[in-house]
């Protein structure tokens, strides 16, 4: 389903070339739930960005559903994301000028779906926000914002869902409820889940834990 082959990412910095990821290879099967854990700066987010095709590796390949997305240009990768990938972010990334409903409609509209409004309303119902469709992000609490983001991630029925510290900006109780919601929806849809976190408790709820340290995999691959 999702495979990384000898991924390498280097960036230039004032101190010279900096290696962020070093020969990372891993395979994730359809329907699997995987947590990528590691300390700050270990390369978790970079790995996520590469797996999701948001960034290009310095060398190595990423395969999604049998397609080498490293060989595609940015628009090609965008098309893959549009069809198969959903995202949940630590800082929610809702568009401030759009209502909750419009935020959830956005990926459907980008995909050209005619039933965007109905599908989005239903997705918001599913995360328990049916009564707040017309609210703007600034009128919602953090937990509510993340629920909108989750509805937005699942509404396109993606094959893979990437979550970057989904509970990182929330208090413990809210975080736990968000995590429950995420795993419930994931189980119901049979989505492959790749979750980046340094919350061991959250990681433990996944089927597999991949550890990363200093740009190298140290366990779980």
């Amino acid at each position: 389903m999702l495979e990384a082959r000898k991924l390498r990412k280097e960036v230039s910095s004032p101190e010279g070339l900096l290696t962020i990821l070093d020969e990372v290879s891993l395979a994730i099967h359809a329907g699997e739930t995987v947590a990528i854990v590691g300390a700050s700066g270990a390369g978790k987010s970079t790995l996520l960005a590469l797996l999701a095709g948001l960034d290009e590796p310095s060398s190595g390949e990423v395969w999604v559903d049998g397609e080498n997305i490293t060989a595609l240009d940015e628009d090609g990768r965008a098309a893959v994301r549009a069809r198969r990938v959903g995202f949940v972010f630590q800082s929610f990334h809702l568009v401030p000028s759009l209502t909750a409903l419009e935020n959830v409609m956005l990926p459907l509209e980008l995909a050209g779906r005619r039933d965007a409004r109905e599908a989005a309303s239903q997705a918001l119902e599913e995360v328990g926000l049916g009564a707040r469709v017309g609210h703007y992000p600034r009128q919602l609490s953090g937990g509510e914002q993340q629920r909108v983001a989750i509805a937005r991630a699942f509404v396109t029925r993606p094959a893979v869902l990437f979550a970057d510290e989904p509970t990182g900006n929330l208090d413990t109780a809210t975080g736990a409820r968000i995590a429950d919601l995420l795993f419930q929806l994931n189980a119901a849809a049979g989505t492959t889940l790749v979750l980046v976190t340094h919350d061991r408790g959250l990681a433990a709820r996944c089927g597999r834990i991949i550890e990363i340290d200093g740009g190298r995999l140290t366990g779980g691959a």
Binding site: D75, A78, A79, R81, V95
Partner: peptide, 16 residues
């Protein structure tokens, strides 16, 4: 900038 990054993340092409 943020909105566009988000749209691209959701699969919007440069052309769109």
């Amino acid at each position: 900038l943020d909105n566009v990054a988000l749209m691209k993340c959701m699969g919007a092409s440069q052309r769109l």
